[in-house]
Design a protein around this nucleic acid. Structure first.
Length: 412
RNA sequence: GGACAGAUGGGUGAGAUGGCUUAAACCAAUUCCCUGCUAAGGAAUCGUAUCUGGUUAACAGGUACCGAGGGUUCGAAUCCCUCUCUGUCCGCCA
């Protein structure tokens, strides 16, 4: 949630910055007038309440014969308060609805652009190997080695659910342990969180109300399967005021993630690149406002160095304004090389949301005398399934075997 | 799932009989004093949000908030209703 005060203070600047994120001026103008309208009505309500309070206080020392007159007067004012109150609520919900649909304002150094083609290459790490045979796709290798069973996954649930078996399952578990150890070495505390969460938490991190269609909801309950542990990790602190000595708080967790993938149509239908359920090791940082950018760099480095340890070629991309997510003010994607597709594919995404989520989830810290909103950052340390894909494809041999990165030996 | 109890500020915890209680007291915290340093001691400040005035400061004032939402009343932390959560006991269970 952006700061509504910015609208009355620096309207033109907000318009200009959010234009980069494809938010229309009309919407922002609407929002501004809703804000001012609500403010005026609220002022009116408050003076009526002040009147009521002041007169009520007189009751104890007013002569008995004047009490009836006073009561009459206040009865009238009470009706006015009720009316104003109804109006204020109406304008408030209208304002909130608008406010909640506005994405975060991008940071100043974000390239303006429409989609992934306008992203900025920051760095390439490791050179993709040359194959002297036609590299196979992970789903072929997976079936050949008995690691991936798509038909039975679909039988058990539906398409986009996959059974991982035998050494594949063991490798997945090894990867998880490797990643968590790596993150711990980067200074992140390991947490085990619920993988079901309520609407308040999902609102806090920005998944609700706008992206409900991508969530699996528990029937008849105010509960959802988490789409990422970012939701539960970040909301650990909602409605809290954190002592500034405790910052930055750096957390890591592994959880299954659940996504409906509504609107992704037939994309990546084969294989395990895009699943309804997948394991992801996540990083979340809660920081003071002044060091979130620096922590973003560190988180990107933490994820990137993990891929380097695994020997996987990858690159870092600074996302352009049009390709960034709803809550982000700055995002760096890490893309891993997939030989079968002959291109880089997203395996990690690290975002600084600034105070956008903190404002929604009401997470603050005490900075001397003042309470300020924290900055929250989140990043996939790596999507486990996609890492599995990358290992299979990059380290396949001509007969379809897969060489396992040495660093994983002690986890197998 | 059944029975009972509870929910107050950063923490602990007072607030029969509704009004001067946004809320005592204690702890923590911040600032200052004292001390060569540490410890101890003393003084002051100290809920959140929002609006108005003031130089976007200090500060002053208004409003709302004592789990959430309704109700009664001129007036509710205090009375009534609904919900949520927590604790304890019983039942069930990995």
């Amino acid at each position: 949630m952006i700061d509504p005060k910015l609208l009355s203070r620096d309207f033109d600047e907000v318009v200009q910055k959010l234009h980069k994120k494809r938010v229309s001026i009309e919407l922002l103008t609407q929002l501004k007038s809703a804000y001012l309208n609500h403010k005026n009505l609220k002022n009116e309500l408050e003076s009526a309440q002040a009147f009521q309070n002041e007169k009520s206080r007189q009751f104890q020392n007013v002569p008995k014969n004047e009490i009836d007159d006073l009561k009459k007067e206040l009865a009238v004012n009470k009706i006015r308060i009720a009316e104003l109150n109804a109006n204020v609520r109406e304008t408030e919900t209208k304002l909130e609805k608008l406010l909640h649909s506005i994405p975060n304002i991008p940071a100043d150094d974000i390239p303006d652009g429409k989609d992934e083609n306008d992203n900025l290459l920051l760095e390439t790490v490791l050179i993709p190997r040359e194959f002297d045979f036609e590299p196979k796709a992970h789903f072929e290798l997976g079936e050949q080695n008995g690691w991936l069973d798509f038909e039975r996954g679909a039988k058990l649930a539906k398409s986009r659910f996959t059974l991982i078996r035998g050494f594949g399952a063991k490798l997945e578990r090894a990867l998880i342990n490797f990643m968590l150890d790596h993150n711990r070495a980067c200074g992140f505390e390991e947490v085990s969180v619920p993988i079901i969460t309520n609407s308040k938490s999902l609102f806090g991190t920005g998944q609700l109300p706008k992206f409900e269609e991508d969530l699996f909801k528990i029937e008849d309950e105010d509960l959802y399967l988490i789409p990422t542990s970012e939701v539960t990790l970040t909301n650990i602190f909602n409605d809290e005021i954190i002592n500034s000595e405790e910052l930055p708080i750096k957390l890591t967790a592994v959880t299954p993630c659940f996504r409906k993938e509504a609107g992704s149509g037939g994309r990546d239908i084969r294989g395990i690149i895009r699943q309804h359920q997948f394991y992801k090791v996540e990083l979340v940082s809660i920081t003071k406002q002044e060091n979130s950018d620096e922590i973003l760099e560190k988180m990107v480095e933490c994820a990137s160095s993990m891929l380097t340890k695994l020997g996987l070629p990858h690159r870092k991309m600074l996302l352009c304004s049009g390709d960034m997510g709803f809550s982000a003010r700055k995002t760096v994607d890490i893309e891993v090389w997939l030989p079968s597709q002959n291109k880089y594919r997203e395996i990690s995404s690290v975002s600084n949301t600034g105070d956008f989520q903190a404002r929604r989830a009401n997470i603050r810290y005490r900075d001397g005398k003042n309470n300020r909103f924290v900055h929250t950052l989140n990043g996939s340390s790596l999507a486990v399934g996609r890492t599995l894909v990358a290992i299979m494809e990059n380290f396949q041999t001509s007969n379809g075997n897969i060489t396992i990165p040495e660093i994983l030996n002690k986890y197998l």
